[in-house]
Design a protein around this nucleic acid. Structure first.
Lengths: 202, 202
DNA sequence: AGCGAAGTTAGTCATACGTTCAAGACATCC
DNA sequence: GGATGTCTTGAACGTATGACTAACTTCGCT
């Protein structure tokens, strides 16, 4: 049997936890199930992590980081409208690609709300703030009002979250593809109206 | 102590279950907690319902029915655009008013997805279909293509779901009020573009 | 008074959870 | 080749809590 380093094992456990959370929910994500998913033993989990809570802290960090990367790595355009549309598309495509990640993220958000903990809100916050940052950097030449950035970020978030919920519920890939187009056109129409009346330079 | 009919007790248990699900999630919605919330005891619950599952079946029906009513009761306008906007507004306002209901519905949807049961999808489906029906009735004079109706219903669903997720996470009422305006303007802009190019009669 | 509906007390039984331990297997260095 | 440190495991521990129930009491009505 291959011997695996603790570092690698930790990473495996994090992946496994995401998978299990997506399938069984937070409350169904037991140490046994996570260990099984990671093809390890329950004792191994406690060899790598002092407690389940320690593992979950890493899971949180992983999810937030992954999300941030997706937003950051969507190739930016010089103008605001294209950047926003590309951002929305990038996030939605990521959701379709990584269903388990998306489902796990939703579970974590729900769970955090119930516990009124700040950790779930942190994931949400971080994602929105990263979106804002990307939008801002796209308008560095012609700054727009912060309120406008906030609104655009909110609309991108809303459209992508709504999309995710639908995709997770139905799991219909071809429908999702069409819905991505609709969502993109919705954003585009609104941006035209929203930014059209106010010149970019203002 | 006042004696309460079984019918009333059942109704109380359903309300209590919604509350408990919103606070503790599906897995945290135990018979003990539900009974306590309903100011009754566990034995009473099993006096009214054969099993927890029986109660949950009623909870599902209640949630789906309530949702349907909200959509149906949004006062319809003669033209499609106004009807759609009013629909979206009605749903979002309902979400803000009934936080526990909204949270419980989200939990039920997530849970249903995990169990690959059809019940959660049924809630989702029913809601979307009701939206479509209302939209159709608003265009009875000048029928539009079914595909258009589908898209509008999807956009309304997406915007309201995304709104709900944000509202549940942050719980910021004044932010939610502003976001309702943004969502409404998003829908309006898109509808103008989407329907503008194709005359209503087509 | 008597009878059925409503309500309670105090459980049973079973499951499954997080966590630990003692012991074994492997690799690496002296 | 033995010592040492890093992985790996099966089997358990204690406990918490789940759904559900039997047996009994109280109420409201006729």
């Amino acid at each position: 049997m291959a011997r695996i380093s603790v570092a690698q094992r930790r990473s495996d456990f994090i992946d496994a936890a995401v998978e299990v959370i997506a399938i069984h929910g937070i409350d169904g994500a037991t140490t046994r199930r996570i260990a099984e998913q990671a093809q390890a033993n329950v004792a191994m989990l406690h060899y790598c992590y002092d407690s389940k809570e320690d593992l979950f802290a890493d899971v949180y960090e992983f999810v937030a980081g992954r999300y941030r990367d997706v937003v950051k790595d969507s190739d930016p355009h010089s103008n605001l409208v294209d950047t926003a549309c590309q951002l929305l598309r990038g996030v939605m495509e990521f959701y379709v690609e990584s269903t388990t990640f998306t489902a796990a993220a939703l579970e974590l958000i729900s769970w955090a709300r119930r516990q009124h903990g700040d950790r779930g809100i942190a994931v949400f916050d971080q994602a929105l703030e990263t979106v804002r940052a990307v939008l801002r950097s796209a308008t560095s030449e012609h700054p727009v009002e912060p309120e406008t950035i906030d609104q655009i970020a909110y609309v991108i978030g809303t459209l992508s979250d709504g999309f995710a919920l639908n995709w997770l519920t139905y799991g219909d890939r071809s429908a999702a593809t069409e819905q991505m187009e609709v969502a993109a056109s919705v954003l585009e129409s609104w941006l035209a109206v929203r930014l059209g009346s106010t010149p970019v330079a203002l």
